[in-house]
Amino acid sequence: MKEVNQTTVTEFILSGLTENPELQVPLFLIFLGVYLITVVGNLGMIILILFSSHLHTPMYYLLSSLSFIDCCQSTVITPKMLVNFVTEKNVVPYPECMAQFYFFCAFAVAECHMLAVMAYDRYVAISNPLLYNVTMSYQVCLWMVAWIYGMGLLSATAHTVFLLRVLFCKANLIRHYFCDIFPLLELSCSSTFINEVLALSFSAFNIIIPAMTILGSYMFIIFSILHIQSTGGRSKAFSTCSSHILAVAIFYGSLAFMYLQPSSVNSLTQGKLSSVFYTIVVPILNPMIYILRNKDVKVALKKLLENISFFLTKNSFP
Rank of each mutant, 00 (worst) to 15 (best):
C105I: 04
K298R: 12
I225L: 05
L268Y: 12
I126G: 12
V117H: 03
M212H: 07
D296F: 02
T10M: 01
L63Q: 01
F311E: 06
V248S: 04
G44R: 12
A249L: 09
Y218Q: 07
S242G: 01
S67I: 03
V282R: 00
F85W: 05
I228G: 08
K80N: 02
T7Q: 05
V83S: 13
Y35W: 14
T313P: 11
L312I: 08
N133H: 13
L173G: 04
G152W: 07
W143D: 01
Y259L: 10
L23V: 01
L23D: 05
I207R: 00
L198V: 12
G233D: 11
V4Q: 13
H176D: 09
F68P: 03
G33I: 07
Y94N: 04
Y94M: 03
S243C: 00
T269H: 01
S263T: 12
D70Y: 14
M114V: 05
N286K: 10
Q24R: 09
N206M: 07
T7P: 06
L27N: 09
P21K: 09
E19T: 06
V92N: 06
V40M: 11
F257C: 08
S155H: 12
F162W: 10
N133Q: 10
L255V: 11
I181M: 13
L163Q: 14
P262V: 08
V282M: 09
A99K: 15
Q139L: 14
L273C: 09
F103K: 06
F104Q: 14
L130M: 10
L14H: 11
G150L: 05
A110I: 13
I222N: 00
A171I: 03
N286G: 10
F317C: 03
T192F: 15
F238R: 01
F277G: 02
C71A: 14
L285C: 02
S190I: 06
T269M: 12
I77M: 00
E88M: 12
N42F: 11
C97D: 11
K2L: 03
E22Y: 11
Y132M: 02
T160A: 05
K302L: 10
K170Q: 15
M258L: 13
F317D: 12
Y123D: 11
V25D: 02
C105V: 06
S230A: 14
I30T: 04
T135Q: 02
P129F: 04
F223K: 07
Y94I: 04
N128F: 01
N5S: 07
C112G: 13
L292N: 12
F51W: 13
